[in-house]
């Protein structure tokens, strides 16, 4: 059992709504590889995540962080290896429907803020004004419900994207650099929203370049280097004393 797994298991007792994420966990990734034209972008990834919490994936540019996130979510199929959520393949529709993803560049439909949420609620046959208003209230966007989503600022669009992801009632949310090129206030608002999401027992897997953000949010760190996992460590331990040389160089700003 890895250190990260042990610390996750000890945290499960304290978690108020751990059962929600537990419907998909544990995540077991075995010998995962992804290549394009004989070039291995990710190779021999083995990873196990057992309980809800925030996992941050760190690494230098081109290390394969976003690619790994897409493989875990099933947006792309691996060249070899398996991704199992609660012993079920990620390709299964029922597994995919329990996950949601928020991308670096927020995508919003060209309609009102409320209609963006309604659209996803209708997809899940859960259309309800109360649910929609609650999601918008949690995202601090209720007063902008009738406004066109495209007129929102970048930070507000990202909060809407997170609220829309929550409208799918997920057990796991993936976020690919959700605060990239945002100002500190917008970043803080999104981080607050993510912590609130996590308190609801939803597992968060986050790719970020922002070391300070990972320090603030993450419970455990997956560090990628040259397409492989250099280490998977509890966050406190990672920032106090990273095991791998690559991670140490990364934290020192040399990578």
């Amino acid at each position: 059992m890895s250190d990260a797994t042990a610390i996750e298991q000890s945290r499960i007792i304290d978690h108020p709504m751990h059962n929600r994420a537990q419907s998909l966990l544990p995540l077991k990734v075995s010998s995962l590889s992804y290549s394009i034209r004989q070039r291995a972008l990710l190779h021999n990834i083995d990873l196990e995540l057992t309980i809800s919490g925030i996992t941050a994936i760190l690494g230098h540019n081109g290390a394969g962080k976003s690619l790994l996130l897409r493989l875990l979510h099933g947006l792309i199929a691996p060249t070899s290896g398996t991704v199992l959520w609660h012993d079920r393949a990620v390709a299964e529709l029922e597994v995919r429907k329990k996950q949601a993803m928020v991308f670096q560049k927020p995508f919003v439909l060209r309609r009102s803020v409320a209609a963006n949420i309604d659209y996803v609620l209708a997809l899940r046959h859960a259309a309800s004004r109360d649910t929609r208003d609650k999601l918008l209230r949690d995202a601090n966007l209720l007063d902008k419900a009738k406004q066109s989503a495209t007129s929102l600022s970048g930070g507000e669009q990202q909060r809407l994207a997170i609220a829309r992801a929550l409208a799918t009632d997920p057990s796991v949310i993936f976020l690919d650099e959700p605060t990239a090129s945002m100002d500190p206030a917008a970043t803080a608002a999104i981080e607050q929203q993510l912590q609130s999401v996590n308190r609801q027992g939803i597992k968060i897997i986050l790719v970020t370049h922002d070391i300070a953000q990972a320090r603030r949010l993450a419970d455990d760190i997956v560090f990628l280097h040259q397409g492989a996992i250099a280490e998977h460590t509890p966050a406190e331990e990672f920032f106090a004393r990273a095991h791998s040389t690559a991670a140490q160089h990364y934290l020192d700003g040399q990578l």
């Binding site: 897409r70 979510h73 947006l75 429907k97 949601a100 993803m101 991308f103 997809l123």
Partner: peptide
């Protein structure tokens, strides 16, 4: 990718795009 993530069937993607 967003539509793929939401598991939206193709025909619905097309209707959404046409409206969008």
């Amino acid at each position: 990718e967003q539509f793929q993530s939401l598991c939206i069937p193709w025909h619905r993607c097309v209707f959404t795009l046409l409206r969008d």
